[in-house]
Design a protein around this nucleic acid. Structure first.
Length: 569
RNA sequence: GGGCCCAUAGCUCAGUGGAUAGAGCAUCUGCCUUCUAAGCAGAGGGUCGCAGGUUCGAGUCCUGCUGGGCCCGCCA
């Protein structure tokens, strides 16, 4: 990684200063390597002289001179080092070094971009986890795509990742589902019913009732009401879960494991966990209820695990579930929740601490709301009524690729305006289209090249001197940044940065490509000799990076952009 | 009343304690005989919500305020 190399160079120079007593050996080593906003300031910059000036009792610029003096003049990576402003040390890289770096992309191919941040540690990403009581809405969709992409990013960053879906199949909601189906079934039999407000109102309940009536009608009519409701809840829940799985699969989201709350109860794991906590002093009884002392770990109030009526709370199951996660051997646990669960973070962190795990190994990521925009207006969404926008509707309308990209193109902790019209546009305004178009253009050039009997030079035979246009060097440099972007996404749990990177890279390529229209030096297939082979070599690397980035985002990399009229023909 | 999130160009948003705060859309001006113009180049447009503080340096960190979203149950 380029940045790391610069860091090593600066560190060596700073250490040399230390050895000579210019900087006290106990001074904090803190300095940063950054990319200046302004190109004229070079490719990389460090604040080392400024941050160490106080400890060295020197003027920053003076110290900068001392540091620069200890950087080898003949470092192959560098073509220039200068001191600027209040004491920045700026580095201009040797363009040839970037171009040499392309070899790394070519050789790694689909593996380029991977980093070793995770060092094989096991991380579980739990996401979606919607109760199987109805179809997924767009809020679930955002969480699903975020969680999936985060998992891919973590995998690329060197973690061993498991995608998990937690199914609440034991609570009241499943009973309510059972009751809703039960009533609809009676209605189908010609009875006049009244559907209570807390029941699920959607039409899908009627469909499920009809199916279950056909398959299990007789059995159900033989049951008493209570067992019928239980039975129907279980059946309907499993049918809906199948639908959710299909819906997710069509969105490109596939979980490795499904964990059922029922399993916890079967093994009496919730009770066992409460006892486990009790033995360690985290539990007390008060007013007939069993309490968890979460305030001991920073929660603002203690929480009930077993209610006065003897029933376990949802939170009790959650603790048992999370204990079970760690017992399965995960070094790190990430939960992806909707923003409305913000109030649960503190108690869950407390629970992780109480079960003897490092709270820092647990992250609850909150995904903010999605506003659907159609024609400039917010399409309002109400969760309880049957009128909310489903993930499936949106995906069918805009397509899977656009759907995913739009969910990923904003930081998860900011609300997202999802513009349906924009997502459908086939023009540069639509970022998904634009990125895919960049990939398709490259594919098209390669098709043309093949027709002309041309192909990319291999790293062994390419003459890098033929890649000499400033835009080409910039492109090469941009390509080499991918591993750093992925690391950043993984550290900050923010895959949207990859989405932005992809857009920026696409712009860079599209701009370069377009110059070929007016300036032959930029035209890839212009002269057909070693120069063309070198340009194709560069383009091949651009294509690899586009493909790898798109793969992590879960978006297809098309060989050609089919016009709508072509598709119809 | 308390907690979490958000506030940056007309609009949608990037922005790692660094130097002159950036994109896209929209507006205006150019560019098609060429590898896909489904595109490209350029111009204008800013009190980074407000007020303090921390320091060599703050859009970024801290405090207070204003405005908006979500949440605050022995619900799930």
């Amino acid at each position: 990684m380029i940045k790391r190399r610069i860091e090593e160079i600066v560190k060596a120079a700073v250490d040399a200063c230390r050895k000579e007593g210019l900087i006290p050996s106990d001074a904090a080593a803190g300095f940063e390597i950054t990319v200046p906003k302004i190109a004229a300031h070079g490719d990389f910059s460090t604040n080392a002289a400024m941050s160490l000036a106080a400890a060295a009792a020197m003027q920053p610029r003076k110290l900068a001179q001392e540091i620069v003096a200890r950087i080898p003049k003949d470092a192959p990576e560098l073509s220039g080092v200068s001191i600027a402003g209040p004491g920045f040390i700026n580095f201009v890289l040797n363009p040839g070094w970037y171009l040499e770096g392309l070899r790394e992309i070519w050789n790694a191919g689909a593996g380029f971009g991977c980093a070793d941040l995770g060092k094989g540690r096991k991380v579980q990403v739990e996401f979606v986890s919607a109760n199987p009581t109805g179809p997924l809405h767009i809020g679930h969709g955002r969480g699903a795509v975020y969680g999936d992409c985060l998992a891919s990013v973590l995998k690329a960053a060197g973690f061993e990742v498991t995608r998990e879906y937690y199914v609440n199949d034991a609570g009241n909601q499943i009973r309510t589902l059972g009751r809703s189906v039960y009533l609809r079934m009676k209605e189908l039999c010609g009875e006049k019913i009244e559907l209570p407000q807390e029941c699920y109102q959607g039409h899908y309940i009627v469909d499920i009732a009809r199916t279950l009536r056909e398959t299990h009608g007789e059995a159900v009519s033989a049951m008493d009401e209570e067992s019928a409701i239980d039975f129907l809840g279980e059946q309907a829940g499993s049918m809906i879960l199948d639908e959710i799985k299909r819906d997710l699969a069509e969105t490109g989201v596939v979980h490795d494991t499904f964990f059922f709350e029922r399993e916890l109860h079967k093994g009496a794991l919730v009770e066992k966990t409460i006892e486990w906590l009790r033995e360690r002093g985290h539990i007390y009884d008060q007013e007939g209820a069993v309490w968890f002392r979460s305030t001991a770990y920073g929660d603002d109030k203690d929480r009930v695990l077993r209610k006065g009526d003897g029933a376990l709370t949802y939170f009790a199951s959650d603790i048992a579930y999370h204990k079970e996660k760690y017992d399965r051997g995960f070094d790190r646990v990430i939960d992806v929740w909707g923003a409305d669960h913000g109030g649960y973070v503190a108690r869950m962190k407390a629970a992780v601490a109480a079960i003897g795990r490092d709270p820092a190994s647990f992250d609850a990521v909150l995904i903010q709301l999605v506003n659907l925009i159609r024609g400039g207006d917010v399409v309002s969404m109400s969760t309880r009524s049957a009128t909310y926008e489903t993930l499936e509707d949106v995906r069918r309308e805009v397509g899977r690729d656009a759907c995913r990209y739009f969910f990923l193109m904003r930081s998860h902790n900011a609300q997202l305006d999802f513009d349906l019209e924009l997502a459908k546009k086939e023009s540069a305004e639509n970022p998904v289209f634009y990125i895919q178009y960049a990939h398709a253009r490259i594919a098209s050039i390669f098709r043309k090249a093949e027709e002309q009997g041309l192909s990319a030079a291999s790293p062994q035979e390419v003459d890098l001197a033929n890649i000499d246009l400033p835009e080409e060097v910039r492109l090469a440099r941009m390509l080499l940044v991918l591993p750093e972007v992925i690391e950043e996404c993984a550290v900050e749990l923010e895959p949207h940065k990859l989405a932005f990177y992809m857009l920026e890279l696409s712009r860079m390529f599209q701009s370069y490509y377009s110059k070929g229209r007016t300036d032959e030096r930029y035209m890839v297939l212009a002269e057909g000799g070693a120069r063309t082979a070198a340009k194709l070599y560069l383009l091949k690397n651009v294509q690899i990076v586009l493909q790898n980035g798109l793969r992590i985002l879960g978006i297809t990399a098309p060989e050609a952009m089919a016009r709508e009229e072509d598709a119809l023909a």
